[in-house]
Design a protein around this nucleic acid. Structure first.
Lengths: 367, 367
DNA sequence: CTGAAAGCGCTAACAA
DNA sequence: TTGTTAGCGCTTTCAG
């Protein structure tokens, strides 16, 4: 008779008030300001609510009135579900979730499929602010976020957006340190594996114009860091093969490594701009019986747990902290009126996949 | 002079309409029903919006009016950030996120700290429904969810809640199969490591009353499955030591294993109710130089990626699928009026950590 | 301590 | 194709 339970709003604050013969204010106060009415009256209201199945003030109506939704929105470039597969994103989310739960705010994951560019989801999100995680400079969703009259914090990229706070890490310096580590080991002929450089699917070699035109500042910076370090050692960057992959997965890393090494067998080190790619490269090396680090040095970037397990030499960035800081920046924004930029440090972690360069000739016949 | 950008709502639909000398309906239609007005007029409206900095219809106001928030809420027992550390939860979230993004719905992570039981967050969530992931039967947040007049899908537990859909896996049958695998290998003296059985922190041995009174049906079922299988082999359950841990982490698994083995050195197999605990047990075995599976068999439950890497014998459950089904159940709920129960199958995966039982005596002197 | 009045910003009939 | 009329359910001054 009454239909399925938990599905209708049987009573409203107004109807409850009418039923009890009190004003709506009183009912509202019973929920929001217990100190504004007598305990017995409050109990009476709550009891009636229970009896009539009144579930308490409607959150949406309250949000409209109070102009606060009690949630922060998160925008990612990739499909939403990707965030739970990528270890870096997962770490970031953990930190962000921590900041949110400490502030008692919800975290709304905004559904964006890279396919149907459904900007509507951004307009539809009932949130008090946005955290934007590592999206491309020309992302339409990001532009939609900027149109919303709520504060925004960008993580990593895009850079240089007016009026928004940003938190990132020192990608360039991290890669510089790594590059110097490699040059000090004698490496001069290297290859680089990097992540997506542009919005459209492309897998293959990326020439310098493409590198410099990338709409992903993080990749630009990481590549730039390697370039800096090798320039110091006198290596001409135009001789360094850089291979790009659209997908960010170990498989992509493995195929990229295979492709690069086939075209450039003289390479003594493979610098990857992420651990995930590096782990794939490592898998390829294992399958192809390439000795690491004896014959080939392989390095990553990020410092994910898996990298530690496999002993990958990498650059660690404080991913979780980055998420937490992003959340705090958004939630604790007092009366700052100038946008803030926070850059967290990175740290070179030398483990077992990097070693002295051995010229490839050494591996031929018995010199 | 104009204050920080992206922070105020400078114009409303009404003010825009007034400015243009058209009705609010027309402006609303320009956004929501492009086919309900002429293209030029629509363009004129949109242009004016741009000029006046009107960011489009306010999502909260629209939600109030349309009675739909465009998001589903997720309730977890643990602190929000925990979800990103636990591999099972992460898999579940991936599936759920997939379902949400396909339906264009947001996913709101409701902030619940187990500490300050802040049920308010549940009341505050502007969502069209809830997915409840594996919470205790007496969770106050869960009760708050049930009070909300929106559909709810429970995943795993609690069981037997009237009027809500549920999706789970066949925990009991999975553990039964695993138990039979062990008895067929000759194991008769086993120990069990299980997850939290009650709401309060407790680490130690769990006797049968405690096991049966647990407010976590999933643990009850998994323990029950082991019990079933060993009963078939004539093993008296009261002789089986069951050790419980409040935290769900490898460390907890390691200390529990140490504790159990110290008290019960006769044990030939350690059955863990989760892979995470089993991985910890494995670590303990490695440190204590206990040969696996030679001296000790160790098994898990879940089938997380890490379990595969270390060759753990376990029971695989379709975690991601579970999340996806939960989401679909909530979102595609047509005119079902009876609650649905979906039970997904589990699968025994025998790998390298289970082997024949060898009586512990064999390990003393040279018989 | 309680009540009356005034919207928050929007959409959905229904008419014109 | 456009406008008019009614709220969605709530909170919040401000008086009593």
């Amino acid at each position: 008779m009454t239909g399925p339970p938990h599905v209708r709003r049987p009573a409203t604050l107004a109807s409850l008030a009418a039923e009890l013969g009190v004003s709506r204010t009183t009912v509202s106060n019973a929920y929001n300001r217990p100190d504004q009415l007598s305990a017995p009256l409050r109990e009476k209201v709550l009891e009636a609510a229970r009896r009539l199945g009144y579930p308490g003030p409607d959150p949406v109506a309250r949000s409209l009135r109070t102009r606060r939704a009690g949630a922060v929105g998160l925008l990612l470039t990739e499909a939403l579900s990707y965030a739970f597969r990528d270890p870096v994103a997962t770490g970031f989310l953990e930190g962000l979730a921590l900041a949110c739960e400490q502030a008692g705010q919800g975290l709304l994951l905004v559904p964006v499929s890279p396919e149907h560019a459904d900007v509507a989801a951004v307009h539809q999100a009932g949130v008090d602010g946005f955290v934007v995680y590592s999206v491309s400079e020309d992302d339409p969703h990001f532009r939609a976020v900027l149109e919303r009259p709520v504060p925004t914090v960008v993580c990593d990229q895009p850079v240089g957006v007016e009026g928004v706070d940003r938190v990132s890490v020192d990608d360039r310096e991290g890669m510089r340190a790594l590059g110097r580590h490699l040059t000090s080991l004698g490496h001069r002929r290297i290859g680089v594996l990097c992540m997506r450089l542009g919005p459209h699917r492309y897998d293959g070699r990326a020439d310098i114009p493409r590198q410099e035109a990338s709409s992903y500042p993080v990749q630009r910076e990481r590549l730039g860091g390697v370039r800096d370090a090798f320039a110091e050692a006198g290596v001409d960057w135009s001789t360094v093969p850089v291979y790009e992959r659209y997908d960010h997965s170990p498989e992509a890393g493995a195929t990229a490594a295979a492709e690069l090494l086939a075209a450039h067998p003289e390479v003594t080190a493979l610098v990857c701009t992420s651990d995930v790619l590096a782990i794939g490269a490592l898998q390829h090396a294992a399958e192809a019986r390439i000795e690491v680090p004896g014959r080939l040095t392989i390095t990553g970037f990020d410092g994910v747990p898996e990298a530690e397990r496999v002993g990958l030499t990498t650059v660690r960035q404080p991913v979780r902290r980055k998420g937490q800081v992003a959340g705090e920046l958004l939630l604790e924004r007092g009366e700052r009126n100038r946008p803030t930029l926070i850059v967290l440090p990175t740290e070179l972690v030398v483990r077992d996949t990097s070693g002295p360069a051995v010229p490839v000739e050494r591996f031929f016949s018995g010199w």
